[in-house]
Amino acid sequence: MVEQKIIEKCKDGDLQSFRELIESVSPFAFSVAFRVLGDEELAKDIVQDTMVTLWQKLKKINSAGSFKTWLYRIVINKCYDQLRKNKREPGFRPDEKTWELISNHVSERPSSELENEEIARVINLMTGKLSPKQKAVFVLSEIEEMPADEISEITGMSKTLVKSNLYHARKQIGKMLDKYFT
């Protein structure tokens, strides 16, 4: 993901190297933040904040190997904060247009990629009823396809809790799909 050399340069305060680092890691951070939050602009803000935090805490990174986990941990924690702020906003609402969009993509062979705005609609529809933890675990496990060990490290949850949250998220989404998606 990132070369140790770049990390070392950034640790020495080299902003040009940090610019390179931002370029290489931002898409990953954005992908996770966007899929968890379901909002492009908020996800961009999270990426910016994450990069600033990264600069502040670079000295604590020992190896490029642990960098990815470290980065995702910062992103997920910032997403949690954001989700807590959004707590009062209405969650899931059955949305005919989004179901239609999903149906169209499912029936396509091969199915085409969704645009950012479409991804946001689908994500919000799927995860609107999930808790922040369930959302994070669902995105990391089911969409980003990370193993439970890594998710446990990123989220700070035990492996059992990760599995439990994933189980509930799957169940919730499955029920909804069964009810609304024909």
């Binding site: 954005f30 999903i102 969704l114 991804i119």
Partner: peptide
């Protein structure tokens, strides 16, 4: 149904 929707989401990478 769950697998189909997941496949769409996995295949659609958000563009920064």
């Amino acid at each position: 149904k769950y697998k189909k929707v997941l496949a769409i989401l996995r295949g659609s990478k958000p563009e920064l």
